[in-house]
């Protein structure tokens, strides 16, 4: 980030504030509890935050576990598949097939093997988070410039060394995008899985609010999820900037965190 930070932050507020005002105007025109505005949502947050904070822990723990499982398995697998081209080409359509199954259709199958507890939900979350991770990693590692290969060959690197020293760093920017998509996906599916296979967590809370027509209460819970998503997203962006500075320095400076 350059100088003029204050001015930058102020101009950055224009879009969000405009959106909030438009939303409030729409809600005011609708005039029904089914379409609350940001003001009603803020009131609900004030009223309900102890309950929401109590429930959100379960959701976040499962989302985190599912995300970690997906990241640990899928990033190495994606790089591997990108290198082993024949296998990669064979597995690629398989990824496309497994990726398009909607969670409500996957849940019953997972339930048959993993029951209705935490494990089942973590499996579903990991499944959803795996898709952007493996796709981005695979694309990145497959699409590496031929030059990178030739460099590796002239340095007489082994296959494993090539993956570790050439492929991984060169794929990192795209993996980072995959990580960000996967985090959002893990959060989203952790709520969905709680709505479909519910015992506790924020998904259950949202559903209960909806069934009782407390739409503002449901949105208050979503606001918490959203803000957590934003914070994690910013963290990842900061890490990206620190570790991938070479990628960002090569172009003009950006600061969209």
């Amino acid at each position: 980030m350059k100088a003029g930070l204050g001015k930058g932050a102020a101009s950055g507020l224009i879009v969000p504030v405009a959106i909030l005002l438009a939303w409030q105007a729409l809600a005011w025109r609708a005039g029904t509890p089914l379409f609350p505005g940001p003001w009603q949502v803020a009131l609900s947050i004030w009223k309900l935050w102890p309950v929401i904070v109590g429930q959100i822990g379960y959701t976040l723990m499962r989302a985190f576990a599912g995300f970690v499982v997906a990241a640990v398995l899928m990033i190495p697998l994606g790089i591997l598949l990108g290198r082993l081209k024949t296998v990669g080409r064979l597995v690629e359509p398989m990824m496309d097939m497994l990726a398009t199954l909607p969670p409500p259709a996957v849940v019953p199958i997972v339930m048959l093997f993993a029951g209705t507890g935490d494990i089942a939900k973590i499996v579903i979350i990991a499944y959803a988070a795996a898709v952007p991770l493996i796709m981005n990693t695979y694309e990145a590692s497959k699409g590496l410039h031929v030059m990178a290969n030739q460099v590796a060959r002239s340095l007489r690197l082994t296959r494993l060394e090539t993956m570790l020293h050439i492929d991984l760093p060169a794929s990192l920017p795209m993996i980072a995008t995959g990580l960000r998509l996967a985090i959002a996906s893990a959060l989203l599916v952790s709520v969905t899985s709680e709505m479909l296979l519910a015992t506790n967590g924020i998904g259950v809370f949202i559903q209960r609010q909806q069934e009782n027509f407390q739409i503002a209460g449901g949105l208050a819970a979503i606001a918490f999820i959203s803000v957590i998503g934003l914070i994690i997203n910013n963290l990842v962006f900061q890490l990206e900037k620190r570790w991938l500075f070479w990628h960002y320095r090569s172009s003009e400076s950006h600061s969209d965190g």
């Binding site: 019953p108 339930m111 209705t116 709505m195 479909l196 519910a198 015992t199 259950v204």
Partner: peptide, 10 residues
């Protein structure tokens, strides 16, 4: 546990 009707028997 909240569970849709079709999954309950299994």
């Amino acid at each position: 546990v909240i569970l849709p009707f079709p999954q309950q028997e299994a």
